[in-house]
């Protein structure tokens, strides 16, 4: 991330009349200004996260006993096929929703990055409309459009001779459906981030490349992509963290068995599995163990992605 630190700083020039009390206030002012965030993050972010690790060691009933069981929850978890299914669903949905989204955003940003493009504001604003639409509303409308019997999509596919696809019942179908919803909601936002970075690339670099005989595609690969590196890293890392914690889409896509996302848990993600065990079965300890596993997965994949994406370099 390219932040420019302010190099020159205001030199406090306390006037001789400043009282001692005021100077103490002045000295703690910066800490007071940043304190709200740290307080909120500590109470609702850090402490719960650490507490998750603690609760995971107990058989913890919200209105009953807390019995220390050591690593039993984890032993049980690793032998639980539902956990491995959910882990696979999570990774599959995340890949299906992230990779196409980022590529699509890259392409669209490239198209939008044109000095003489008309209606540029209209295009940009339209692409932000899905972002302001709620996940709940998105899920309801996409479920209907992708319905097996009465959905618009299957009706259109019917003209091409395709048999109706039961998106919600099959594993890959439900993953695709959820990925489409996630992609729809986020690709415009990502496009704008990429576009902003593209516009910051000095024109002279492209001109020099053109003089050297580099065409549009070469310019895109050798100038645009490497210049976008910071924002690509940012979007990859944030979509890893967000995409692996998907919850609302799978919960709402299957109205009949919301907590499992269908009869055979075909699209139950880890967060939904956590919710099912914690708030559906009231097994806080087991739910927390799922949380710990998810934490490891998120941090692991985010780190791998960070390392991989920072290696984007101009090719020589």
């Amino acid at each position: 991330m390219t932040t420019t630190l302010s190099t020159r700083r205001a030199q406090a020039a306390p006037a001789g009349t400043t009282s001692v009390r005021q100077s103490i206030t002045e000295r703690i002012a910066p800490y007071a200004y940043i304190a709200p965030f740290f307080l909120i993050f500590a109470v609702f972010g850090l402490v719960p996260l650490l507490f998750t690790f603690y609760v995971a060691l107990f058989d913890w009933n919200p209105i009953g006993e807390h019995v220390f069981v050591g690593l039993d929850n984890f032993t049980r978890l690793f032998a639980d096929t539902r956990f491995w299914d959910a882990a696979w669903n999570t990774i599959s949905i995340w890949l299906l929703s992230t990779v196409p989204q980022l590529l699509l955003a890259l392409g669209l940003a490239h198209l939008l990055n044109h000095a003489r493009l008309r209606m540029a504001v209209f295009f940009r604003m339209s692409m932000l409309v899905p972002y302001i639409t709620s996940v709940a509303a998105t899920t309801i409308v996409f479920s209907q459009m992708f319905d097996r019997d009465y959905g618009l999509l299957n009706w259109l596919l019917g003209f091409a001779g395709v048999e109706p696809i039961d998106f919600k019942q099959s594993v890959w179908g439900s993953h695709v459906l959820i990925a489409v919803m996630v992609t729809w909601r986020w690709f415009g936002y990502t496009t704008l981030l990429y576009l902003a970075s593209l516009q910051a690339i000095p024109r002279a670099i492209y001109e020099a490349a053109a003089v050297d005989g580099a065409g549009g595609w070469k310019q895109f690969r050798h100038i645009s992509i490497p210049s976008l590196r910071p924002v690509i890293v940012f979007t990859i890392v944030t979509s890893t963290i967000g995409g692996l914690q998907i919850f609302t889409e799978p919960l709402l896509v299957s109205r009949l068995s919301p907590l499992t996302c269908g009869p055979v848990r075909q699209c139950q993600t880890l967060t939904l599995f956590l919710y099912e065990q914690g708030f559906g079965q009231f097994q806080f300890g087991y739910g927390a163990a799922i949380g710990v596993a998810l934490f490891v997965l998120v941090v692991g994949l985010a780190t791998v992605n960070y390392v991989l994406s920072t290696r984007i370099r101009p090719e020589r």
Binding site: A10, Y33, L46, T52, L244, G291, V298
Partner: peptide, 28 residues
């Protein structure tokens, strides 16, 4: 805009918290 001891470290912590997944801690 303000100078105070620990500023850079604290800011780094702020940035790092963005990478902490907290939704999975819903139970606590």
């Amino acid at each position: 805009k303000l100078r105070f001891p620990g500023r850079n470290v604290l800011f780094l912590i702020v940035v790092l918290t963005m990478t902490v997944p907290t939704q999975l801690a819903v139970i606590p």
